[in-house]
């Protein structure tokens, strides 16, 4: 390595190190706060005076009002269901727009694209009263329906991916007498692992981070809250002093599975994001 290269290399590593520290400080701060013994959102010292594991323990023992385990199960249930439904619906729609040609295709694609632009929470009162009229208010099923109901709008990444699968594969299968139904399940889907994973991750994560729809649908029913809404309640004005450190602990617990998921499925994520773009 030449001298100049060495200098550049050291410089770049230093910059990266500084940047990654900047990126990790909030994460570190979160973990630190989750072990802090003093209550409250603010302390007069940066470093906690004492550490404790109680914030974590409290989440699982003091469940009378803030039932974290229950919220976690609710969220997991909703996330798994809506992940499955959303993935299937999205792939179906993407496949239709990518492979099948019919009269209203272009119009439908544009309408779907446009509908996705409407601020989602504008429709929440309407959705709440609709759910209520069919007896689904304050149920997890309503949440699943809300999260997967818009699946038809997020087709374009998956469609971009399907567009890159050579159509000759379809044609060969059609010559063998396969119907479109068979082609979808037997040819397209097995070739689309990255995009299936990508769609599934996104659908899986949505229920963990949304707090708006949950508060509209669940209202005062604490037991049916999901983690995000629950955590949000922990830090509202009346509770923040008492529960801030527990909130941090809960956030750490929620983040761990997502970190693992991301690290494990990183490559699918990248190929998903670039699928629609990579062919220009």
């Amino acid at each position: 390595m030449s001298n100049r290269n060495k200098k550049i290399s050291i410089l770049m590593h230093t910059v990266l190190a500084i940047l990654s520290v900047l990126w990790l400080i909030p994460v570190f701060w979160l973990v630190l706060s989750s072990f802090r013994k003093e209550k409250g959102a603010y302390t007069s010292t940066l470093w906690p005076k004492a550490f404790t594991f109680d914030n974590y323990v409290k989440l699982f023992t003091d469940t009378r009002l803030f039932n974290f385990p229950k919220w976690f199960c609710n969220t997991l249930f909703v996330a798994v269901c809506s992940c499955i439904i959303t993935t299937i619906l999205t792939l179906m729609v993407a496949y239709v727009y990518s492979r099948l040609r019919f009269k209203s295709r272009k119009a439908l694609m544009n309408i779907s694209l446009v509908l996705g632009m409407f601020p989602g929470f504008m429709s929440m009162i309407a959705i709440y009263h609709f759910m209520k009229s069919i007896g689904l208010d304050q149920t997890l099923l309503a949440l699943i329906l809300v999260y997967s109901g818009g699946a038809a709008l997020n087709y374009y990444i998956a469609k971009g991916f399907f567009d890159t699968i050579p159509i000759s594969l379809d044609e060969a299968a059609r010559l063998d007498g396969a119907s479109r139904h068979v082609i979808f399940w037997k040819i397209i889907l097995p070739n689309s692992k990255p995009i299936v994973v990508n769609t599934a991750i996104n659908a899986f994560i949505a229920p963990w981070v949304d707090f708006i729809f949950v508060s509209v649908i669940m209202k005062d029913n604490y037991d049916k809250y999901t983690v995000a809404k629950g955590l949000f309640t922990m830090v509202d004005k009346a509770n923040i002093f008492e529960y801030y450190t527990s909130f941090c602990a809960a956030a750490v617990l929620v983040s761990i599975p997502i970190v693992l998921l991301f690290i494990k499925l990183q490559k699918y994520y990248v190929s998903g994001v670039t699928a629609g773009a990579s062919k220009g």
Binding site: E38, K39, G40, A41, Y42, T43, S44, T45, K237, A238, I240, F241, Y244
Partner: peptide
């Protein structure tokens, strides 16, 4: 700051503050 600033700082860097019985 809101109440949590007062609750967190009083006795340390804050010597007095205005709030209610809660």
């Amino acid at each position: 700051g809101d109440d949590s600033v007062l609750e967190g700082g009083i006795g340390d860097n804050i010597c007095c503050g205005v709030s209610g019985p809660w």
